[in-house]
Design a protein around this nucleic acid. Sequence first.
RNA 1: GGGUAGGUGGCAGAGCGGUCAAUUGCACCAGACUGUAAAUCUGGCCUCUUCGGAGUUCGGGGGUUCGAAUCCCUCCCUACCCA
Length: 316
Amino acid sequence: MSAFTNALVLTGPTACGKTALALDLAERIGGEIVALDSMTVYRGMDIGTAKPSAAERARVRHHLIDVLDPWESLTVAWWLERAGAACAEITARGKRPIFVGGTPFYLKALLHGLFDGPPADAELRRTLEGDAARDGVAALHARLAGVDPKTATRLHPNDVRRVVRALEVHALTGKPISAWQQTWDTPAFADPAESAPPPARVPAAVLTLPREVLYDRINRRVGVMLEAGWPDEVRRLRELPHALSREARQALGYRELLEYLENGGDRGETAELIRTHTRQFAKRQLTWFRHLPSLVPVPADAGDAAGLVLGAWGII
RNA sequence: GGGUAGGUGGCAGAGCGGUCAAUUGCACCAGACUGUAAAUCUGGCCUCUUCGGAGUUCGGGGGUUCGAAUCCCUCCCUACCCA
């Protein structure tokens, strides 16, 4: 938990200009960048993830980029651990760790921590998912209500993924997941008496942009990425010795391009689909940001955005 | 000019006399989210509403009927076929 005491965070929706600003800031304060990103970890997935270029990485040292092969899986817990290690390493070198990226779940885990529960059990999950398929999602949800009514109340029966995880935690530990999850501000656990003490505050800035401006940037950037050879990149990924992992395969645009290459879709329609899905993702990011109270908003298009971010971080 | 098939909510597309403000999908808006998270799930989506309802909708106009998006007449438009 004190792993991040020295860290700074710069987040914002996709395509809002985080990368360029972060390089500038890192150079100004002697920082190194840690990717707060679930997809730039993969080697060979460069264009569509808007991964910082070699030149940019030569300017400022980056961490947690290109650390996995596309057929490998990752989890938040794995990321968080690596992030903490990177942080310690950077601090030991006398530099400032700057987390840059827009994966909101990882951001929240960084700011609030994760409960110390058991990792996923693939076989158990397969069984539970099979049960849901055979007996229906309502039956699975009812089973959860039997062992953890608190969690069952807040999960929709169709939310199989979370119902399965809740059942999994209970089966593995004998304790309901709601007894473990006391570090976040989830409505069900808003009672201060039941919440863990707030974690050390990590200064964090969110870049903001008017919705229309952001959407326009997204639309244009997808076009640029496609022109830059994104489809060829995906073709190369398909020729790898192993199939892409579930996590890598679900990356925005890669999934659509894979579908396009495998089933011969329409190029223009695919491009539009990627634009739409990217805009929808940006919206989801905004929902997270709105509800993370410690994030300090900074207009990305402000003349002195860098200065404003430094102010938000409390450095000036 | 003749023939055929059509014109339904932002789009696609059901409905074919009442149970229709109108199935569904997409888009859009909002919410959730603790080991798949660039994923996944949920709600809303004609207008107004004291949330009980109320008022306008299914190309335009006119009819039939207790009652029409659904039937008839007419006009306009679209697609394809024959000229």
